[in-house]
Amino acid sequence: MNYDELEPIYVAKNWKESGLECALATVINTWGSSPRPIGSQMVINSLGKFSGSVSGGCIETSVVSEAIEVIKSKKSKTIEYNVTNKDAWGVGLTCGGRVNIYLEPIE
């Protein structure tokens, strides 16, 4: 296997070619100890499958549902994720960081 094939944009290419709609999530800014650096990407398809990562697994679930909205609306948007310690089931970075994610449809 060529590991380049795991690069989110290449996964997106394969999905698009097989007729699936996709969105791309990119870490555009970080504060404090966030797990993935600026520029990290994750791709999500209309079935809710994803590849790549924008955190250590803390916010991926939320990013997927936001991405499905972006696929439907075809409108890009920026989402900020903060630390949430109050609600263990809530979305946030347990590591104490803050990240901005840019979500865009692949057209």
Binding site: I9, Y10, A12, K13, K16, L24, E104, P105, I106, E107
Partner: peptide, 8 residues
């Protein structure tokens, strides 16, 4: 992102 950009 435009699909054509991925190819580029």
């Amino acid at each position: 992102m435009k699909f054509s950009n991925i190819n580029k």
